[in-house]
């Protein structure tokens, strides 16, 4: 009756509300935790101590070289056709503008195809605004990650992107972007949906839109951070691993409570809950707190490289990085037999409405690095319809989280990990 024991203990028993309380303490204490900062390293030390305070002492860290991109002053002012301040968040790794800023006319496009169809003379010396309407994150985010490179290739002096979000109350959403090789690095930033639509309407009416963009930032590549590994040793096959995970770093806005504080804390809760209930599975459950996810899955790539020769021991890998709202089930990658085993396990969670198995070739963010090598894995499938309202914004605070839903998530995460780690057979590759 393990599932019921865990659900009862977390949802109604002594653990009720503890995931939320610990998450709230954590994000209130450290606030945002960007890659390469002292805040992130202090938060890692805090999680290690929090785990040891639970009498779980099998905790190690592994060093990872990470970048530090630090935002300075950012300001966009519309000069023509009228004066207006434009809310802005620079994108990760963006270069600075000169101190006086860049003043130029705006060209609005809705897609890369539209950009490519433009004469180079029409782009050269101008600011390109990518006003791509949000469809799915994976589809729309390319304008954020590649927009600066594509605009620079056509001679633009700066690029702006409509925030990658389906909804906005004038909130800009930051995020990572990468400069391609052999292109001029131009400043790049996100503006709000409202301002992107405003500029788009003016542009389509034939009005000349002129902006001044002022952005300052610094970028260093030689900082050191750490992945944190908490092992809850299995009693029969300690070398075999079932991994649960979330990332501990965040963007420099809000508190990173949703992205990915919730995923971090339900993964931290797994060994804690099992230890408190004295439930010891056959295989080892490893909780990993990934570092430097936001600037490109840097901790996950380092882990995969460091543990490549042991990867056969990973039986299953789980990650929560798309919200910890009410759990609905799992988004699973693996063979037909692996998916059927997980589907059978999920049937045990009908009482909390978390029995749905969604198939995906590449679930999660960090774990995609390992799943793509053939390891079966899953991400938390949850009622995250509003996730991208808050993603990478000042609005990502503990206020977004719900105490009961975090309890459901922690209980579900723990029970699923326990069952997989305790079965008599491995999840097949």
């Amino acid at each position: 009756d393990v599932v019921n024991e865990i659900l009862q203990y977390v949802i109604e028993g002594d653990f009720k509300g503890q995931t939320y309380d610990e998450l709230a303490k954590f994000v209130d204490k450290f606030g945002p935790r960007p890659s390469g900062t002292e805040s992130l390293e202090n938060s890692i030390d805090y999680m290690i101590q929090l785990t040891r305070d639970e009498d779980i002492n099998n905790v190690v860290t592994e060093e990872v070289q990470v970048p530090l991109w630090e935002r300075g002053e950012e300001k966009i002012t519309m000069h023509e056709p009228r004066h207006k301040n434009i809310a802005v968040l620079g994108l990760g790794r963006s270069v600075s503008t000169p101190p006086e800023g860049i003043t130029a006319e705006v060209v609005v496009v809705k897609s890369f195809d539209e950009l490519e169809s433009q004469e180079e003379n029409n782009i050269k010396g101008k600011i390109v605004l990518f006003n791509a309407i949000f469809t799915k994150y994976g589809e729309t985010t390319v304008y954020r990650t590649q927009g600066a490179t594509r605009a620079a290739q056509k001679g633009a002096v700066a690029s702006l992107v409509r925030s990658v979000a389906p909804f906005s109350i004038n909130s800009p959403h930051t995020g990572a972007q990468n400069y391609g090789e052999n292109v001029t690095k131009i400043p790049t930033a996100a503006i709000t949906i409202e301002d992107a639509d405003l500029i788009n309407r003016m542009y389509e009416r034939g009005e000349k839109v002129v902006l001044n963009i002022q952005m300052q930032s610094t970028y260093e590549t030689n900082k050191v951070s750490r992945n944190t590994l908490v092992d809850y040793k299995g009693i029969q096959y300690p070398e075999k691993l079932v991994i649960v995970s979330g990332h501990i770093d965040s963007w420099d806005v809000g508190q990173g409570a949703m992205d990915d504080g919730g995923g971090l804390f339900i993964s931290w809760a797994v060994p804690v809950i099992l230890h408190r209930l004295n439930l010891r599975p056959k295989r080892t459950i490893r909780s990993i707190f990934w570092t430097a996810e936001e600037l490109g899955l840097i901790g996950a790539y380092a882990y995969e490289e460091r543990h490549r020769n042991e990867s056969d021991n990973i039986n299953f890998i789980m990650e929560s990085d798309e919200g910890t709202f009410a759990p609905l089930g799992l988004e699973v990658a693996g063979s037909q037999e692996a998916r059927c085993m997980i589907a059978e396990i999920l049937k045990l969670f009908q009482s909390i409405n978390a029995s749905t198995l969604v198939e995906s070739d590449s679930p999660g963010s960090d774990i995609a690095v390992l799943v793509n090598t053939g390891i079966p894995g899953a991400s938390l499938y949850n009622a995250n319809e509003k996730y991208f309202w808050f993603h990478h914004t000042e609005g990502d605070t503990i206020t977004v989280e719900n105490e009961h839903e975090l309890d459901l998530g922690a209980a579900f995460w723990t029970a699923v990990a326990y069952i997989i780690a305790d079965l008599s057979v491995d999840i097949p590759r």
Binding site: M341, A343, L348, L357, E359, D422, S424
Partner: peptide, 26 residues
């Protein structure tokens, strides 16, 4: 693309023994 799984297709994939083992956790 993510698609909800049709679990009926699993009926011939897992052994009865394994299905019973998993059910025993409830």
């Amino acid at each position: 693309a993510s698609l909800p799984k049709n679990t009926e297709e699993c009926s011939n994939v897992l052994t009865e023994e394994l299905i019973k083992e998993i059910a025993a956790y409830d």
